[in-house]
Design a protein around this nucleic acid. Structure first.
Lengths: 175, 175
DNA sequence: ACCTGAACACCGTTCAAGT
DNA sequence: ACCTGAACACCGTTCAAGT
């Protein structure tokens, strides 16, 4: 059977989860799939494109998320940011991968649009709301990058979650 | 004359400024210094240690910074965060390099301690002040990572500074 | 003390040639 | 259409051996 783009993405997803970005090489991927390295380039343009697809897959579950309308908007925004953090934290070097995807289209990548909408519901302009959304996302990426770097080095990360929660509160409860 | 650790760091600093992290390899560094790659390992333990020294050098000017006591503490904190941003922004891939250094010792790396002291002066506990400092630093690292990734890709970065300033205000003017 | 030479175990990407 | 074989131009790190 012919090699497919899906197969490549699935294998890459597996390596990223189990061994991290350092072990996710095109050559290793090819070996895992039983093909020559060059074969991959018929299905994907390059490694960067592949990482972009993986980033999309990481944040995809955010679209399926629904919230109780009774909960205040800012509280839902805080929860959504927490979900975003959990998803990238669950993948080794997830923050590095998602950071590049966010850089390419900051306002389109989940959860930016949803976050902006929620913050708008608290009575500020769309611009201020988007600024808040970008701040939350970039703070989260900075936090998770730090945490995952520490994890990779075997350092203590017990205070990471509390520091993250405190930061989200600081951003959200301002005027 | 014998090769020195300083010479290696200076050459690495030059390559990082001019060509970025992608071109800063131990082999390229050795070639630039006219020695074999293995020679470097007599002076530095490994590449990571070298990057750590470069990160320290990037944020070192923050220690020499002084502020007018008439300016309110939170305003000085905002200014210090802006200086931190400028320093890492001036070096290609500066955010990637400083992120690792911050991960290793978040509370010690400049400008964390100074920032925490300034925020304490606005009437909150030392713990809350440190949380604010870490939030500012991680948001800044997230922001500059985004901007430098976009610069490397030739994408527009004209809104980066405004987004950064807005984020700092959100973090600092909260309660 | 300090460095060379040479190796080990890798990278991403391209592309003529095969099926 | 899809893949192999082989190459190009690289990596970080180690370590016996030389000076």
């Amino acid at each position: 059977m012919a090699l497919s783009r899906e197969q490549i993405v699935d294998a890459a997803w597996g390596i990223l989860h189990s061994y991290g970005l350092g072990d996710l090489s095109m050559r290793r991927l090819a070996k895992e799939l039983g093909v020559q390295p060059g074969a991959l380039y018929w299905h994907v343009a390059n490694k960067q494109e592949l990482l972009g697809v993986l980033a999309q897959r990481m944040v995809a579950p955010l679209s399926e998320l629904t919230f109780d309308d009774a909960v205040p908007p800012l509280e839902r925004a805080a929860h959504l940011t927490g979900e975003f953090r959990s998803l990238i934290l669950a993948v080794r070097d997830g923050a590095d991968v998602v950071s590049v995807a966010h850089s390419i289209s900051p306002e389109e990548l989940n959860p930016a649009p949803e976050l902006a909408t929620l913050v708008t519901g608290s009575g500020v302009s769309r611009e201020t709301a988007m600024a808040t959304a970008l701040t939350l996302i970039r703070f989260t990426l900075g936090s998770v990058t730090t945490q995952q770097t520490r994890e990779a080095m075997g350092l203590d990360t017990s205070s990471s979650e509390a520091e993250f929660t405190a930061g989200v509160e600081l951003v959200l409860h301002s005027r």
